[in-house]
Amino acid sequence: MKEHLLDIGDLTAAEITEILDTAAGFADVALRPIKKVPVLRGRTVCNLFYEDSTRTRISFELAAKRLSADVLNFSAKGSSVTKGESLKDTALTLQAMGVDAIVIRHSMSGAPKLLTGWVDARVLNAGDGWHQHPTQGLLDLFTAREHLGHLDGLRVAVVGDIAHSRVARSVVQGFATMGAQVTVVAPPTLLPPGIERWGCAVDLDIDAVLTKTDVLYLLRVQRERMHQQFFPSTREYARLWGVDRDRLNRLPEGAIVMHPGPMNRGVEVTADVADAPNSVITEQVTNGIAVRMSCLYLLLGGEA
C-alpha cells in the first residue's frame, strides 16, 4: 500500500485486489453483535470536511470506529487566508496535535495532495473537486466483484456528467486497471477533453451500449449544469441519456445498475430503476464501510 490514498490511478491491480480482499474480511464485522475490531486502537483519525457530505463522512467515521480508532470530525467552512483559517494552517494544527490519518473532502481538486506536503499523517482523499474519489471507486469495484464474481473482462458503461465528476474519474480508472472494458456515455458537452486517452471507449448513444453492458453505472447529473447550457433541460437529458424501465430491460441477464448517490430520480434514473432488483445502490453504501475500513487499516495498521 502507498503512503497515502489520493488517486485510484496510483494503485496497481494487485494493490486494489489486496484492498478488496481485506475489505471482504472486514465486511463480516458488521454482522457481529459487537461491530468492532481492535486493530487501530490508540490511533487517531481526523475527518477534515470542507464540503458537506453526510454520507461519506459517516461512512468514514463508522469505518474508523469499527477499527477502534479515535475519531475527530472537523467541519470547516472557509479555508482561505481571507476567510477563516487557511488549509495550510489547519494542516499544521492537526500535525501539531499528532493525528495519524486525515480523511479530507474538499471542493477544490488537489487539496489532499497539498495536504501531504504539510503533514506527516496518512492522507485519504474522500473526494476532491472534480478530481478523484478513490474510496468510492474501490467500493464500486468491491460491489461489482461481489455480484459478478470477477472484474476482468467486465463490460462497464459509465453514463452521465463525466466532465465534472470525481466519481467518474475514479470509477473509469479503477475498472480499467482491473481489466474491465469501460465505455463512457454522455452528451459531448459533458465529456472532458482528452477522454480518449483515459483507456476507455466513448459513445454518445446509450442505446448502442446497453445490450453489451454488465455494469451500468449512472452518475448524478446536477440541475445546475442545465443552467450552464451543458444540455437544454433535464427532461431532454432524461429522454436521451436517462435510464428508465425500457432501457433497463435491454440490459443482458445478470447485469447490475450502480449509482454513487445521491440520486436525481427522474433525471439520470427513474424511481422504478433505482429500486429494481438488479439495482445494487444500497449495497454500495453498505460496502463503503468495509472498503474504508480496509483502506484505513492498510494505510495505518497494515504493517504495524
Binding site: 481538486s109 472534480w130 474519474r169 472532458p192 477533453p193 482528452g194 477522454i195
Partner: peptide, 12 residues
C-alpha cells in the same frame, strides 16, 4: 484546457 486538466479535475 486539455488532457491534463481533465485528469487533474481542474476547469479548463
Amino acid at each position: 484546457e486539455g488532457e491534463l486538466s481533465s485528469v487533474l479535475g481542474l476547469a479548463g
